[in-house]
Amino acid sequence: MPSVEPTRKPAPPPAAPPVPAVAVRQVAVTLDRVTFERGGKRLLDDLTLSLTRGGITALMGPNGAGKSLTLRLLAGLITPTQGRIVWDGDSPIPARDVALVFQKPVLFRRTVRANLDHALSIYGVPRRLRSARVDELLEIGQLRGLADRPARVLSGGEQQRVAMVRALAARPRILLLDEPSASLDPPATAAIEGLVRGAAADGVKVVLVTHESGQARRLADDVVFLHRGRVVECGPSPAFFDRPQSAEARAYLAGLLLV
């Protein structure tokens, strides 16, 4: 089942209904004609996109397409210049329901255990419940042996595992990943992908920005292809890779520079 509602391609006419009428119950979040401008430049241009609950959605596209901006909008770090973001359920969505992992992990200057504990504390989890959850997370991230090491001396892959399980600490509804394994070696990448699959299997909606079509093929249920701040194409993963519909996606997948 595709987890992305098809948006109109290439661009919706001005009178387009803001939210697709079908399968509304399944929708986790909709970006409704979102425009984002900075310094007079339009970085996201009338972007409409619905993400359904569950599953892994890959956001792909060349540098500057607006992938990371889309993640930051979803994470609430920036607000749209125009348009709106509509969450299913609570609005605005509580911060603890949306977790964000960066390409370069940002870890607290504390031990691994203290990183997880402090995150839970920020998320408002009472102290008496924290230590059991921390142990669970250490287990999930295979970080037991590293629990009392300072987090920032670990290897890149270990640090990213800490960032991943820390993001999962408060059981978010949606997990946003910004090229989480871009600078990791294959074994570390495999570990991260394992955590991503595990989160998705637990019902967490995953939105993954990746440059690597191999990774998108391995993980994603569906793909959203962005170019110049617009959704150019989206659909189920195998179809996107085997029969890309748009010229832009074909060129991108063929390794051409989209200029």
Binding site: R72, A75, L77, P94, A95, R96, L100, V106, I122, Y123
Partner: peptide, 16 residues
């Protein structure tokens, strides 16, 4: 500068 986006995405208030 390093922590800002992380703390904001976690919903940390001014005090935290």
């Amino acid at each position: 500068g390093e922590y800002r986006e992380l703390l904001e995405s976690m919903g940390a208030g001014r005090g935290a």
